[in-house]
């Protein structure tokens, strides 16, 4: 399996994001066990310590919780926490870049909003 090949991001961050995506897509439900560091290492062909670092980030953010000797589980509010985090951080960041690029290309605010509406329409 291949990770999103956005190679500027450290692998452990991409592991954390992969698990988050699985949670958002309901492939991991609340209180369900997620992959162990060894399963992740096997799945993504990486060192288990790197995989563990990805899991640790999610434990620190309380998206996952640890049950001693049993593994890592999805927290009750994990999905809404991830969605909120992505809206506040990732999406805002992307919007910022979009605005900057539009400015570089002399695209007006009006034109940019039209473009977004057009994209929305195509997705429907």
């Amino acid at each position: 399996m291949d990770l999103n090949s956005d190679s500027t991001k450290p692998i452990y961050i991409r592991i954390a994001e992969w698990i988050e995506n699985e949670i958002i897509a309901d492939r991991f439900q609340s209180d369900e066990k997620v992959h162990s560091q060894y399963q992740l290492a096997d799945l993504f062909n990486i060192n288990p310590a790197t995989a563990a670092k990805g899991l640790t980030i999610l434990v620190e953010q309380q998206i996952l919780y640890k049950r001693r000797g049993l593994g890592m589980f999805v927290a009750l509010e994990a999905k809404s926490m991830i969605l909120e985090k992505r809206r506040n951080e990732t999406l805002t960041q992307m919007a910022m870049e979009l605005v900057l690029e539009a400015r570089r290309l002399s695209v007006t605010e009006e034109e940019l909003i039209q473009l977004i509406k057009k994209c929305e329409g195509e997705q429907k």
Partner: peptide, 9 residues
């Protein structure tokens, strides 16, 4: 490399 990783795991 794959064999090494799998056996190490």
């Amino acid at each position: 490399y794959r064999a090494l990783l799998k056996d190490y795991i």
